[in-house]
Simulated assay, not measured.
Amino acid sequence: MAPFELHTAHIDGLVNAGLQFDMIATRDDATLAGQMLLQQHYRSIGVLGDHEDPPDYTAALADHAFHPVAVLRLLDSYEYQSDETADWTTGPASTWITRLRDEVLSRLPAETKTRVRYGSLSVPAYQLLPVYADTPWAVTALEQIPNIGDSTIEIPVVRKGLPAEILTGPIHCPNGGLSSRVRHVTVLGLGQDRELPAFARVREPSDQAPGVYVLFEHGRHVARPVDPPGMWFAASGAFIHTGDWRWRELIGHSLPIPLHDHHPER
């Protein structure tokens, strides 16, 4: 994607985000920040020389609060369109957007900024969220920037886990459960808090290796599907296991554990 001239509404979006996330205190400060951002952008695309004055700019205020992930989209776009100068990394515009990005990410779940696979690329997890895609790469009106909505922001970040194989024997009754249609799972969490140590976050779940949680109940470990939430599962006769060294670190032994994926009410 070649750099192109951003609309002043895109700059308005950034300075409004600065106000929203407490980096800018007043409208006058917003105008000064916008002039600085525009000057760097115009230098990057060749509209201004290195020592030319910043363009005329007055900040326009939005009538709604922006979704934090939409702000991240604005920042990514601005950086891509404005970093073609020799002093970019040490300049005020780069410092400003880095500070704003850090402030936005600090108010979101930590997993938002972890890197995940997307095809052949490795990208921050927030770039895979719907609101990121719904925000225009080049904003031309403040109304195009998604609203924050209610105060609760739930972000379905893609999680990584430990791949494991499903083992079945002669007594196997999944009743439509996971083991009736796939041969692998991905262990995404362990215990009541559903957390997984960083060393075991190897691969994202997929249709061929859906996510499961491993719980310790009645003196043994069992695995249960992640979805659908609230559904009760029973033993199907299937087990999960992997020869990966991480399995012993997670479970405490090297043996298979039962997969509870049989839903009696089906």
Rank of each mutant, 00 (worst) to 15 (best):
M1P: 04
A2Y: 12
P3T: 14
A9R: 01
A9H: 06
A9N: 04
G13T: 06
G13Q: 04
A17N: 03
G18L: 00
G18H: 00
D29Y: 01
T31D: 14
L37G: 06
Q40L: 00
Y42K: 08
S44C: 01
S44H: 02
D53P: 00
P54M: 01
P54R: 09
P54V: 10
Y57C: 11
T58S: 14
L61Q: 14
A62T: 15
V69D: 11
A70M: 08
L74I: 09
L74E: 05
L75W: 05
S77M: 06
D83T: 12
D83I: 11
T85R: 06
T89H: 12
G91A: 07
P92D: 14
A93Y: 08
W96V: 08
I97T: 13
T98V: 06
R99Y: 05
R99E: 15
E103G: 00
V104H: 02
E111S: 14
V116Y: 01
L121N: 13
Y132Q: 10
D134I: 00
W137M: 01
A141Y: 00
G149A: 14
G149K: 04
R159N: 04
P163M: 03
I171T: 11
C173V: 10
S180M: 03
S180E: 13
R181F: 04
A198I: 12
R203L: 08
S206A: 13
Q208D: 15
G211T: 04
Y213V: 09
V214K: 02
V214H: 06
V214M: 14
P225F: 09
V226W: 01
D227C: 00
P229K: 03
M231T: 15
W232A: 15
F233C: 10
S236N: 01
F239D: 06
I240G: 03
T242H: 02
G243V: 11
W247F: 14
R248A: 13
S254M: 04
I257A: 01
P258Q: 05
P258M: 04
L259S: 13
H260T: 01
